[in-house]
Design a protein around this nucleic acid. Structure first.
Lengths: 160, 160
DNA sequence: ACCTGAACACCGTTCAAGT
DNA sequence: ACCTGAACACCGTTCAAGT
């Protein structure tokens, strides 16, 4: 059956979480889908717009993972961080996608924030995750205090 | 005269600031230096270790730019942000280098901070600059409020 | 509408061999 | 010690042509 943009994005996300950004190439993606690389360009304009799709999916997952009981922003942001940490190098992708498309690539909990504060929180979350993921990629031991440090910074930014 | 690791790094930094990360390839770097690409590998182990050198130079520049009168951390961090903004995509490079080498790639003003707070500040600074630089790369208008928003977030983190 | 085949203009890295 | 030359195993993207 014919490829769809959804199967392309699903497969891309799987490569990302299993092998990382270095292995997420258009050629590799095509191979896993059993088509020629050029076939992908009928479904997505280029690699960058594929990244935007991936960022949207990751955000959607963060939204789905947020328990409805979580009424405060703090809990939702912590969930967003955890979902990001599931996908290697997702921070880099979301940075790009956020720059391209703005708040729409963020989970609802972050979209609602007043713009100035949102910008601060986005910088902090993506920066923190980017550093953590970069360390993980290099097979360096993760900072054991990363989660606590994140919480503390988040509280400071939220004025808690 | 023979190449040195310093001329390699200088030229790399010039390519980075003038043309961006996409143009900073080992082949292009070699071309500008008038040597074969393979010659570079006598001076640097690989591209990643070149990035660490670049991050160290950028931090050194931030240190040099900090006026000695600036006794508070806040002013030094603002200077670091400004120096980072001078080099396209420098945030990505410093994220990688900080993950590899830790605090030694940071300007002195940041190195002195107590580790938990330092980690928060680094995440915030690099995340904020990464988003700004990503927007600039896409030729999207910079957020006019970026500097104020950064200041506000920084004050919150520093408990000011 | 959807995909193939072939091409274009590139990459990072290694390593024998030269000087 | 420092560099060349040639190769290896890749990239993203375009576009005529096929079905």
């Amino acid at each position: 059956m014919a490829l769809t943009v959804d199967t392309v994005a699903d497969t891309a996300l799987r490569i990302l979480s299993d092998f990382g950004l270095g292995d997420l190439t258009m050629r590799r993606l095509a191979r896993e889908l059993g088509v020629q690389p050029s076939a992908l360009y009928w479904h997505v304009a280029d690699k960058q717009s594929l990244f935007v799709l991936l960022a949207e999916r990751i955000s959607a997952e963060a939204e789905a993972a947020a328990r409805p009981a979580e009424t405060d922003h703090s809990a939702r942001i912590l969930t967003f961080r955890e979902v990001l940490l599931r996908y290697r190098e997702s921070a880099e992708i979301v940075i790009l996608a956020y720059s391209v498309s703005g708040a729409q690539v963020l989970p609802a909990g972050l979209r609602e924030l007043e713009p100035g504060l949102r910008e601060q929180i986005v910088a902090f979350v993506l920066g923190a995750v980017a550093v953590e993921q970069s360390r993980a990629m290099l097979a360096r031991a993760p900072e054991p205090t990363a989660a606590q440090s994140f919480r503390a910074g988040l509280d400071a930014l939220l004025g808690a």
